[in-house]
């Protein structure tokens, strides 16, 4: 679609993205000055607890924040150098599903129950590609086959309620990838699925990513998934990026206490030992603590942590937002 992609420009650049929602305390940022890049064919894990702003970040990239209660207050989202946030709806619709696709957490409710799955895949295909009805149908059946739906010819005419959750997520993947996007945003794609199905769906996604040569932004709270599938990890806390690095660097050597605390919680890491959930909760935006927003829950906090809000420091191979990043020796995984 876009001609003349500048060499060396990352596929997606998110710069200073700030998304606000209206609350009883007025407009408050849920995503606050978030910046990161996604390279072509790269897999990025965006992690953090619930309420850290991961999903909102993902939605904002596709321009799906809007209406009376939400707005993008600042920032740029550059796709091949083109800022998506300045585009009008009709231009954005050409990007959605075509260049950037998205799959969501709830496969049970994410397909329209009133139409057959075949019709809905064809609808997306014909929306973006100049296909005849017959061509689109053939391609839809191929897609169903590709995402591992058995007997796709027959399943083509099924309604969503005739499929299991795992099958529905496969259908949604088929729909999202029907036009071979450059970037797939997967927002907790396996959270609602059975454990055995989770692994299958992740495997499917990895296979498709390789086949289609697309980049993936995987939004998840599951670090085990990130360790297995991602190249790079971005850790968010209370709407900010607190650490980002290659998976191979981050897991053995976390520099932010929040990352370390989440790593310590990886199930199966210390068999026989009880999990140690991080005490406390993510602070709501209207009641942020002074200084470092993580400090009240941090076991490494000092007085300085409660006084100064740390900047995100670029260390070359990683970025980290912690006053004590240099002095702490935090335990990691897999060294």
């Amino acid at each position: 679609m876009s001609e003349g992609r500048a060499v060396g420009v990352p596929l997606l650049q998110v710069e200073d993205l700030t998304v606000e929602f209206v609350t009883e305390h007025g407009w408050l940022p849920v995503v606050d000055g978030v910046s990161f890049e996604i390279g072509r064919q790269e897999t990025i894990g965006l992690i953090g607890e619930s309420g850290c702003g991961k999903s909102v970040t993902a939605m904002a990239i596709l321009g799906l924040i809007g209406g009376p209660s939400g707005r993008v207050a600042r920032g740029r989202v550059l796709l091949d150098g083109q800022d998506l946030l300045v585009l009008e709806e009709p231009e954005l619709r050409e990007v959605r599903g075509r260049r950037i696709a998205m799959i969501f957490q709830e496969p049970m409710t994410s397909i329209d129950p009133a139409f057959t799955i075949g019709k809905q895949i064809i609808e997306v295909l014909r929306r973006h590609l100049p296909l005849s009805r017959a061509q689109a149908k053939q391609r839809a059946i191929d897609l169903l086959d590709r995402v591992g739906i058995p007997d796709p010819h027959r399943r083509f005419d099924d309604y969503p309620h005739q499929l299991s959750g795992g099958m529905r997520q496969r259908v949604l993947i088929a729909m999202a990838l029907s036009c071979e996007p450059d970037l797939l945003i997967a927002d907790e794609p396996t959270t609602a699925l059975d454990v055995t199905v989770q692994a299958q769906v992740l495997e499917l996604l990895a296979g498709l990513q390789e086949e289609l040569g697309m980049a993936v932004l995987l939004v998840t709270h599951d670090l085990a998934v990130v360790a297995e599938t991602c190249d790079r990890t971005i850790v968010m806390y209370a709407g900010e990026v607190v650490e980002s690095a290659d998976v191979t660097a981050l897991f053995p050597d976390p520099r932010h206490p929040y990352t370390a605390a989440m790593l310590a919680n990886l199930p199966g890491l210390h068999p026989g030992e009880p999990l140690r959930p991080i005490p406390g909760i993510v602070p709501p935006r209207h009641a942020l603590p002074a200084g470092c927003w993580y400090s009240p829950r941090c076991e490494h906090r000092t007085d300085a942590c409660g006084a100064t809000h740390p900047q995100l420091v670029d260390l070359g191979t990683r970025r980290v937002r912690c006053l004590r990043a240099d002095e702490l020796d935090l335990p990691g995984v897999g060294r």
């Binding site: 959605r96 075509r98 998205m102 397909i111 609808e123 999202a176």
Partner: peptide
């Protein structure tokens, strides 16, 4: 599913 329809660029 309405959000999905929008995300698919319909």
């Amino acid at each position: 599913f309405v959000r999905v329809a929008r995300a698919n660029g319909l």
